[in-house]
Design a protein around this nucleic acid. Sequence first.
DNA 1: TATGAATGAGCTTTCATTCAT
DNA 2: GATGAATGAAAGCTCATTCAT
Lengths: 216, 216, 216, 216
Amino acid sequence: MPNKKVLDEFPAAVNATKELTEKQKAVLITSIQLFAKQGYANTSTHQIAVAAHQSEGTMFKHFKSKANILKIALEPIIQRVIPDVLAELQQETLKQPMDNLHDFLAFFVRNRMAFADENQDAIKVFLSELLYNQDLRAEFLTTAPENFVNTFRTVIADFQQRGLMVDWPFPIIFRHIISVLTGYVVDRYILFPNRDWDDDQQATYLIAELEKVLSA
Amino acid sequence: MPNKKVLDEFPAAVNATKELTEKQKAVLITSIQLFAKQGYANTSTHQIAVAAHQSEGTMFKHFKSKANILKIALEPIIQRVIPDVLAELQQETLKQPMDNLHDFLAFFVRNRMAFADENQDAIKVFLSELLYNQDLRAEFLTTAPENFVNTFRTVIADFQQRGLMVDWPFPIIFRHIISVLTGYVVDRYILFPNRDWDDDQQATYLIAELEKVLSA
Amino acid sequence: MPNKKVLDEFPAAVNATKELTEKQKAVLITSIQLFAKQGYANTSTHQIAVAAHQSEGTMFKHFKSKANILKIALEPIIQRVIPDVLAELQQETLKQPMDNLHDFLAFFVRNRMAFADENQDAIKVFLSELLYNQDLRAEFLTTAPENFVNTFRTVIADFQQRGLMVDWPFPIIFRHIISVLTGYVVDRYILFPNRDWDDDQQATYLIAELEKVLSA
Amino acid sequence: MPNKKVLDEFPAAVNATKELTEKQKAVLITSIQLFAKQGYANTSTHQIAVAAHQSEGTMFKHFKSKANILKIALEPIIQRVIPDVLAELQQETLKQPMDNLHDFLAFFVRNRMAFADENQDAIKVFLSELLYNQDLRAEFLTTAPENFVNTFRTVIADFQQRGLMVDWPFPIIFRHIISVLTGYVVDRYILFPNRDWDDDQQATYLIAELEKVLSA
DNA sequence: TATGAATGAGCTTTCATTCAT
DNA sequence: GATGAATGAAAGCTCATTCAT
């Protein structure tokens, strides 16, 4: 049930402003699944409607256009990549203070691996659409700094001030972390999803890679 | 003239079997440019024909299908990502023996940065098509091991045997290198092509990142 | 109104599984008319759509392909060449027993002449497509034996056993009857539709021809 | 080598006015073969050119249009269906006078069966094109009466005057003969070419069929 | 003269979106 | 409101014919 999380997040992310019926949720989930399997351009609205047991007319009444279905379906991904990890980080630090780089990286890597596992379809679609979808890109590049990059920046700066992290510019460090994690996700879920993966071993190496580079 | 290299490589990569006229080259270059700007699915063959000053009929006589235009246009990328660096590496090692990790990484990073700079459009298209284009993916995943992964494997193993590189499994090391370099390419050419990039500084950091992780 | 019968037969032949709207019927009738006038290959789907006052999109949604329009439009011909005559033959024999060859031939010839008159367009298209349309041919050659040839075989065998018909092999007799009737149809409706035909006289001769050959 | 005869007849039929090179003959023969296999509309001029080892340019220089290739390729069939049989009939009657209906029908049927066997491809194409090709049809319907129908009329009238043939109108008799023979050709060469045919037995029956109907 | 590359109109089919019911 | 039939523009591709070499 790899898309369970996406569904669960809809209420939190979207329901604040809009009520989503079960069928409307089905449209969003089905869309992500079909887009992930075939690509956005190769998926017809008819196909979505049939798979979501909706009529095309009703679908367009609510979502207005195919592009908008994509946009709404990906919103949780864009909005929750960081907030989630922050919320859980807070809970974690309540249990025990996280005063070394290793513990932080271990938590962060495993947390995001879990997120990737639960949202693999949406992530694949997001990565691919980021390339050519001007609107999505614009939204992401304006939203990301606020609830994503800036939060990250604070955490990094904190580690650096405590002398626990290498004193490189933030963009370099930020890109490095994203690169290593995204590289894993692409390898694991997009290029070779059928390999026999040992997730724990993978986590260990990812943490080690990041630690070697980022430690002061 | 960012696509100069792609053009120059056509003779080497394709002309062995087929002579390409100027107009046929124009079709391939124009296609890559349009695909990079709009995406493959959002670019019509009519648009390509007009931009390449060709009639659609002639285009289809030579290239048979839109999918085949893409395939042929990307062939140099698939075939030459590694052979190029190897050839130049050989020339380089003739000048001075490369017996430490830093020198190798410095050469490798700068060489592939140049390659990326020269083939940015084709790389963008390649990355995006890798996600959903079954044929391209199949071709890449069968071609890559031979002229790409295996060569890499030998070089890595050599450094490891000499005790100059960390003793991690090859897939981990391989993915790490690819991730870091691809992360840079996406950042530099796809997400923020208009930023004021200091390529030399970027190279320095990339080399440092890789060296910290890979050194024994 | 030469295609009245074709239309009337759609309910019986097709409506069992699918309801046909008026416009869908119009597509089928118009197609047959255009195919009969210009040939299948020389008739564009656009032409059909305009003539049937339909949009091409709607047409394709229902009929899926041009080939399928042809197939569905000809189905009544393939399915009803013999069943019709049999049904009416049964009704006829209720009125008066048909115990000589002449009466049978007279009924059969006039009945099929009426069928040809009502379905001339479809018959022309059918004959021409039989030559090169692999699918139609395959369907006909598998359907025909069941509801066509075998029924005929029984009737012929019956007359032969009663000593009323020449003792030749069935394929010879079958082909002879079909040849003579088809020859008439081609002469009458395809080669010289504008001649001044005396249908009654034609029937008399056709019956005489068949009777001379087939009588014991 | 079923098309040998067609080729051999080209000199006689066409060379009087036009010289045909070997390659031009190849175009005509190949066309007929392809048209017979796939239909005229489904055969491209490119396909013909390749199969005949000709360039499309040269082909069009000589034949002007695809329609004209068909027309010229079928000319021998149209021109020689009857003249052939007449010439051989003359030779035959020199050996022994043919003063009964059976001998004439036997000669005629076997002679036309041989013709059909040698020109099966061209006959198939001719029959199919007769349906929709206005030009071919017009040519045939003006040419046929002169060198075909009228000759036939004379022979029939002669038999009738001698009291050897039924006293029916010529069109009825003519159509009957053509129908029976064409029915055989379609059965033998178009519908079921792969059956195990006993040509001698077929001839016997065809003669018997015609004799029963036509005898006085 | 012989060639085959070039042409562009026309083909069948798809699809996001609208609208009558 | 919900439906799915209807729309028609645009897609990829083919082809008979022309024309520069």
